[in-house]
Design a protein around this nucleic acid. Structure first.
Lengths: 302, 302
DNA sequence: ATCTTCTCATACTCAAAAAATATCAATAAT
DNA sequence: ATTATTGATATTTTTTGAGTATGAGAAGAT
């Protein structure tokens, strides 16, 4: 019993006519008759009742036909499924991201991807850059949005592409401005003001690169940060700023996270810039990943 | 692309080794390699990454495999489904019955059938003997439990088998006995008492054969029935008896329908007998029907 | 470093299966 | 009666699937 014979059976069951069925199947009638007969012999029961002029299904044939039809239909959608998987229009894409990306590239990227590839199962995981790199290295996940280390420290097994490069801005309690504790000039905060203010910042182990970028700002000005509090979530940091506990240096895109009592102010002079980009394994040739990369090329994220 | 190639693909995907897969498939390795290659060519994408020493699935292959596995599994259950349909262990059986059978043969028949063939979809329809015969004649339903007409009036297209032959008994209001309006002697009701009592009976058009059996009882005794009420359901008739409206002549098996205020009493002498039997189309060779018939032969219903 | 082994690919041959052609036989309609 | 229709049978041809023999490249052993 093979799919060919089953197809033959279905066609005869539909037409109830060997000649016409053979035509539909692109073959001649004799081999079709033989095919059905051998199928019946194998099953040990007739599928059709044939008089010399008429063909009809036996009760067994009639009840079996829908099962066969369903199995054959499933079989025949396999090439279509394959095509969709090959083109990356179906399948899965597992994307990890650092929490800061949540306010900049991630939403627009995810939205566009979902729009273009609605049938791809996109799974998103928040993780630090280090953890993302480790997971990808172990073959877990397809791509990660990270804050990149120095080029030489990025393992050879990865490709990297910059997504966005944005200056840090200060998130400050609104009250401190009203009380003249901070004095922005022309919409910019002076470095003396920054240095003099208690700082709320990520713990270094959670985001070493971002942490280092902030502390280097102080070091470059011959000072060191007066870290009053660590917090592991951007939202928590902003909440603490709102409570007047201190200021924070955050990526500019965090302006999207509006919160009463918090003002975002540009830094005076050349602000440190935070780069965010995408990494993926060189040897990963998943088509869903390829589609994501293509989409990244097409989008103007900066 | 055919089921054979897909099976090859699945086996290689499981073993990740062409030689061992070929062995599992009962073939040699070269044609297996060719089969996979031709499948890959047809799909337009590689299913496996082969180095000279290693085989692994491509992302596409890995994602396609479960779809293929499911389709092939469905395909391979078709012979099993066919066997069950052929043996009548799956499929459907549509049985109609007269309402009186509800209290005699039907429950035990249905119970036993369900027990033996739990996967057969058994559909039960209550109908008069005439309607059942007509439906069967039109190819609707498999068998019917009817009160049979004279043999010569049963169309040639049917087979018939008696299931039960039971005497009619009188269903009488309990109060009438207490009030000595009826006087059973030795547990039997005299025909004078029957003739003298108002009768509740099926309308003739709903059950002509049963109706005729009852009226012939009166005719044979030179009387005619004093029909005080028609009712179309056995339960209604017994309810009316319980209310003291009259008596009814009912099949003995109706004793199973106990009701306060109603007594079932044998008729004096030779009581009219009601036959109930099964009909089916001679040319219906459904295996579920065959199983029902076999079951009927094995059971002692009388 | 060389040799052996493992493993998938290639070239070629053969057998079995599928389908074609030609024809038959039975039935229904003209 | 005759003809057209339709499924079955007989026989040949084509296609497909699988076999054998062998090659080539990589990993591991000596």
């Amino acid at each position: 019993m093979n799919a060919r014979q089953l197809k033959h059976f279905l066609t005869v069951a539909e037409t109830l006519h060997f000649g016409r069925a053979a035509e539909l199947l692109g073959m001649t009638q004799p081999p079709l008759s033989q095919s059905i007969m051998s199928l019946e012999q194998e099953l040990g029961a007739p599928l059709f009742l044939r008089s010399r002029r008429h063909v009809e299904l036996t009760p067994f044939g009639a009840q079996w036909a829908p099962h066969v039809a369903s199995a054959i239909a499933d079989l025949e959608t396999l090439p279509e499924i394959a095509a969709r998987l090959i083109e990356g229009r179906a399948g899965s894409l597992s994307l990890s991201f650092v929490s800061t990306a949540d306010y900049s590239v991630l939403p627009v990227l995810v939205h566009r991807f979902r729009q273009l590839y609605p049938d791809v199962n996109l799974s998103l995981t928040e993780a630090t850059s280090d953890k993302q790199t480790a997971a990808l290295s172990n073959g877990v996940g397809h791509a990660g949005i990270i804050i990149p280390p120095n080029r030489e420290r990025l393992p050879q097994e990865f490709f990297y592409r910059r997504l966005i490069r944005e200056p840090l801005v200060a998130a400050v309690p609104e009250s401190w401005i009203n009380e003249k504790r901070l004095n922005p000039v022309g919409g910019q905060l002076k470095s003396e003001d920054v240095i003099a203010s208690p700082l709320i910042v990520f713990p270094r182990d959670a985001a070493p690169l971002f942490h280092d970028l902030v502390t280097e700002y102080y070091a470059a000005r011959g000072a060191s940060a007066d870290v009053i509090q660590h917090a592991i979530q951007m939202q928590t940091i902003i909440s603490l700023v709102s409570a007047g506990m201190g200021i924070a240096l955050v990526p500019q895109s965090l302006r999207h996270l509006a919160r009463t009592g918090v003002r975002y102010i540009d830094l005076e002079g050349a602000a440190p810039e935070l780069e965010t980009g995408l990494i993926w394994r060189r040897d990963d040739n998943s088509s869903t990943l390829a589609n994501l990369l293509e989409l990244v090329e097409e989008m103007e994220l900066d």
